[in-house]
């Protein structure tokens, strides 16, 4: 472990704004990369089911 206390860890030796903003924004971009296809799939499945139901009702 490189840091003695938790406060030291968050302070990052005075470089806290740089380290935490870089990691924070990068993590956000990675999470977006997971969330976007998940939500798109959910929407596609819902749309397709509605379409299938509509076609079955029309027959």
């Amino acid at each position: 472990m490189n840091f003695a206390t938790l406060a030291d860890f968050f302070a990052m030796g005075g470089h806290a704004p740089y380290v935490w903003s870089a990691y924070g924004i990068s993590l956000l971009v990675l999470l977006l990369n997971v969330a976007v296809p998940l939500l798109a799939r959910r929407r596609y499945v819902a749309d397709e089911r509605r379409r299938i139901r509509r076609e079955e009702a029309a027959q």
Partner: peptide
């Protein structure tokens, strides 16, 4: 990797802790 990069890896003798950004910069 995140825990190791942020908390366990030693700091750079010149750049201090800002060097930890390497652990996302280089892989990306």
């Amino acid at each position: 990797g995140l825990v190791w990069a942020l908390a366990i890896a030693p700091e750079d003798y010149q750049q201090g802790n800002s060097f930890r950004i390497i652990y996302i910069h280089v892989p990306a």
